[in-house]
């Protein structure tokens, strides 16, 4: 009856596949959010110019930046939601402990972030088709650089970015679960920190964005974003180890 032959790796594997089936609806929100972002992107950023050569040139710029940003926020919110009581209790419906539960959630988040990032990387094509359907005018593309290498690097960095923001959401959610006071305290602290740093001459958002998104070296970017993600997930992990299940 009693079995001591239980390996954490085995349980984590089972939990990841369980979470895949149990939380399948996260993709509903992913699709809805990406389609919404496509809708928002249809506006384009316009630039018109009439020059001396009797030409009125109007250029409408489109890109899927908005879709990517929406997807990054989706990662944040989804991870945040997974820390809420109902979802954590789903964890405890079957064999688990906090270590395996958190580990499997992180792996699960990595999987869904990869899927979301891959979808976002292709969403530019959808935008193109929709823009063409609306205007039926010739499309120009200015792909500063093309090629499989650039695509792969972009995709990896996008996935890492989504995963990192999911980590922020996961950590924030865990902190809130730990003490409900943080629902108010966390945003206040965050914005307060931003403002105080700003007034001290350090622009936090600029620092953060420069640190990561101005990094032109692909490998350095990977290391930086993984370091930031790890910090977030470790915080979440440490807190989850203290959380009880009060159902």
């Amino acid at each position: 009856m009693y079995s001591a032959d239980i390996s954490t790796a085995e349980v984590v594997k089972k939990q990841v596949s369980y979470k895949w089936r149990a939380y399948i609806s996260v993709f509903t929100s992913l699709v809805v959010i990406q389609l919404l972002a496509v809708l928002f992107s249809l506006n384009g950023t316009g630039m018109s110019s009439s020059g001396g050569m009797n030409y009125n040139i109007r250029v409408e710029y489109y890109n899927a930046d908005m879709i990517m940003i929406f997807t990054i926020f989706w990662g944040f919110i989804t991870a945040l939601l997974l820390t809420t009581k109902a979802y954590r209790e789903d964890d405890f419906a079957f064999v688990t402990n906090r270590t395996s539960g958190t580990l499997s959630t992180i792996i699960y988040l990595w999987i869904i972030c990869s899927i979301a990032g891959f979808a976002a990387s292709l969403s530019g094509y959808l935008l193109k088709v929709v823009v063409f359907l609306f205007t039926s005018q010739e499309l120009l593309s200015n792909n500063g650089a093309e090629g499989a290498g650039i695509y792969v690097m972009g995709l990896v960095s996008l996935i890492l970015t989504i995963f990192m923001f999911a980590g922020f959401g996961y950590a924030a959610g865990m902190i809130v679960q730990w003490n409900k006071m943080f629902v108010i305290l966390l945003p206040v602290l965050f914005i307060g920190l931003l403002i105080s740093l700003e007034s001290a001459g350090y622009s936090m958002d600029r620092f953060f964005f420069q640190f990561l998104f101005s990094e032109q070296n692909f490998w350095l970017f990977i290391m930086k974003s993984l370091a930031v993600s790890t910090a977030a997930y470790v915080i979440a992990f440490l807190i989850s180890n203290r959380l009880e299940v009060k159902r």
């Binding site: 009856m1 009693y2 079995s3 001591a4 239980i6 954490t8 349980v11 089936r21 149990a22 939380y23 399948i24 609806s25 109902a86 209790e89 789903d90 405890f92 419906a93 064999v95 688990t96 402990n97 906090r98 270590t99 395996s100 180890n241 159902r247």
Partner: peptide, 26 residues
């Protein structure tokens, strides 16, 4: 926080929470 205990025990009450995306059979 013990996996061995979790694997060898089960707690059944009327508050059990199962993912709504799964059917009873699942």
């Amino acid at each position: 926080n013990n996996l061995l205990v979790s694997a060898n025990s089960i707690y059944i009450d009327d508050q059990m929470n199962f993912p709504t995306s799964l059917t009873l059979k699942e």
